[in-house]
Amino acid sequence: MDEHGQNFGNHLLIALPSLRDSFFERSVTLICQHDSDGAMGVMVNRPSDYTVGEVLQQMGIASDDQALQAQVVLAGGPVHPERGFVLHDGGRTWDSSLDVGGGLFLTTSRDVLEAMARGEGPGQALVALGCAGWGIGQLEQELVDDSWLLVPSRADVLFDLPLAQRWQAAAGSIGVDLLNHASHSGHA
């Protein structure tokens, strides 16, 4: 939460073309938590080198669900890249779930993956390794500096669209065409 009491949780943070950070360039990040200590989110449009099947196998979890096994694990961010995060819908909570808002949850416990492997998991889910974090006031300053565009979260961007389309579609949800957006911006 910033000094004006704004909470950016359950919003998509879209990297503007002017953001030249190689890790976050053209990224879309769901802000999962935003409070007086800073912000935390998970990138939702960058594939990792792993599939969910490989992660399940590494964890010793068996699954016959071919579609689940083939699902790409996302590179969620540079913080804790060894740690798994499951972003999902549904009313059921797991051992370690954070209520993101809008019916979305972020779970870091093994039980959600075990349920997914049995076909008893949430209706919609994505698996990511790592997350992104911002210190106190850092995200707010980056927004002022025109590094990011902030838009309300959309389930289709998170779960349905191909990864390559999520950056433009997220911005398009509020009428912004990033492909025609100037690569620099300024303040009058």
Rank of each mutant, 00 (worst) to 15 (best):
D37C: 09
G90R: 03
S63F: 01
L150V: 10
G53Y: 00
I136M: 04
Q57K: 14
R92I: 12
G133I: 06
P152L: 11
Q57F: 06
S63P: 01
S36F: 03
T93S: 08
G38L: 10
I61V: 07
S97W: 05
M116R: 14
L158N: 09
S48N: 14
Q124V: 14
Q141K: 09
L129F: 15
L126M: 15
G101R: 03
M43D: 02
Q66E: 13
L87T: 11
F85V: 01
W134N: 03
D49Y: 11
T93K: 03
A125F: 15
S153H: 05
S48E: 10
G84M: 13
F159W: 15
S153F: 02
Q69C: 06
G103S: 09
P122V: 15
H88L: 03
V42I: 05
H88V: 04
Q58F: 12
S36C: 07
G101F: 08
R83G: 12
D145M: 02
S147Y: 03
T93P: 05
G102C: 09
R110H: 10
L68C: 02
G119K: 02
D64L: 03
V79K: 09
L139F: 08
G121H: 11
A62V: 03
A125T: 07
M40H: 05
A132H: 01
M40K: 14
G76C: 11
S48G: 12
L74A: 05
R83N: 14
G53P: 02
